Amino acid sequence: MRRTVLGAALLLPAIARARPDATLLHADDFDHGLANWHVECERPGRIETRGGALDIDVPAGVTLWFRHALAGPLAIDYSVLPVAKGGPNDRVSDVNCFWMARDPRAQTGNVLDRPRNGAFEDYDDLQTYYAGIGGNGNTTSRFRRYVGERGNRPLLPQHDLRTPDTLLQPNRPIHVRLIANGRHIALLRDDVPLFSLEDPAPYRSGHFGLRTTQSHLQVRALRIWKLDAA
């Protein structure tokens, strides 16, 4: 494992409260196929690695779970390009993710022990943090703390964003940083806080998953860091 220094945005007091040094736990530059990923796809699509990117081109819902279980405090970094080049799924929508996801109905709590079909509602019963940037045809950006109940996706008013600066732009990459540092849960977009939560009962371990539906995304440079405790 390698120690390094993360950017100043990680140190925002209300977001992370982390010291600047961190240990690299996992990295994927998408040059060795999909060995690190478990794919749950609602309908057949094209999911492949090429040119240092994970290329996701799908007509319906898909979740790609990172196979390694994670424990906080941690930060997850990656970039996403919403592709708009005239393809059938190039609608610029749904840069989504789960993190610290657990399945209370699985004996071990591991989300990989009970596969799902890729439809969004099939994930309602997880205990997880979830965020969607440019959802609903690029009209909303939302953050939720799932509580493990079918049909229940809690949404606080401050986590339901609709202004243009919180949405996606065609063919423009964004950098996503997810934080799970004790009670401090956050998503930073291009080093700017988009969502934050002070969670009195935080989810401290689980899986990370990339999520989208009817879209064409290219994901690059995944890094997962172990943070010093706040």
Rank of each mutant, 00 (worst) to 15 (best):
residue 112 L to W: 01
residue 118 G to K: 08
residue 102 R to T: 12
residue 121 E to M: 10
residue 102 R to Y: 02
residue 114 R to D: 06
residue 118 G to M: 11
residue 127 Q to V: 11
residue 133 I to L: 12
residue 127 Q to D: 13
residue 109 G to E: 06
residue 118 G to S: 10
residue 129 Y to F: 13
residue 125 D to F: 02
residue 106 A to R: 06
residue 131 A to C: 13
residue 129 Y to R: 12
residue 128 T to C: 14
residue 104 P to A: 06
residue 128 T to W: 05
residue 119 A to C: 08
residue 120 F to T: 07
residue 111 V to W: 00
residue 121 E to R: 09
residue 130 Y to E: 12
residue 108 T to W: 03
residue 104 P to V: 04
residue 112 L to C: 11
residue 126 L to K: 03
residue 121 E to D: 10
residue 133 I to K: 10
residue 102 R to M: 08
residue 128 T to P: 05
residue 116 R to Q: 09
residue 103 D to M: 07
residue 110 N to T: 02
residue 118 G to E: 09
residue 120 F to E: 12
residue 108 T to N: 12
residue 110 N to M: 08
residue 101 A to W: 05
residue 132 G to Y: 00
residue 110 N to K: 07
residue 114 R to T: 04
residue 126 L to P: 00
residue 107 Q to C: 10
residue 125 D to L: 01
residue 110 N to Y: 01
residue 115 P to G: 12
residue 104 P to T: 03
residue 113 D to F: 05
residue 118 G to C: 10
residue 109 G to S: 08
residue 118 G to R: 06
residue 111 V to N: 02
residue 114 R to A: 11
residue 127 Q to C: 15
residue 110 N to H: 10
residue 115 P to V: 07
residue 133 I to F: 08
residue 101 A to R: 07
residue 117 N to G: 09
residue 105 R to D: 12
residue 104 P to G: 05
residue 113 D to E: 13
residue 130 Y to N: 12
residue 125 D to Y: 05
residue 118 G to I: 04
residue 122 D to M: 10
residue 121 E to V: 01
residue 117 N to V: 00
residue 117 N to P: 01
residue 105 R to Q: 10
residue 102 R to S: 09
residue 133 I to D: 02
residue 111 V to L: 11
residue 112 L to I: 05
residue 117 N to R: 12
residue 112 L to F: 05
residue 126 L to T: 00
residue 127 Q to Y: 03
residue 112 L to E: 04
residue 115 P to D: 15
residue 101 A to L: 14
residue 103 D to L: 06
residue 115 P to T: 07
residue 108 T to V: 06
residue 115 P to M: 14
residue 118 G to V: 07
residue 118 G to Y: 02
residue 115 P to A: 13
residue 121 E to L: 12
residue 116 R to W: 00
residue 132 G to S: 15
residue 109 G to K: 03
residue 130 Y to I: 09
residue 122 D to F: 04
residue 126 L to H: 03
residue 134 G to F: 01
residue 124 D to W: 01
residue 124 D to K: 01
residue 128 T to I: 10
residue 121 E to G: 13
residue 109 G to M: 10
residue 125 D to H: 04
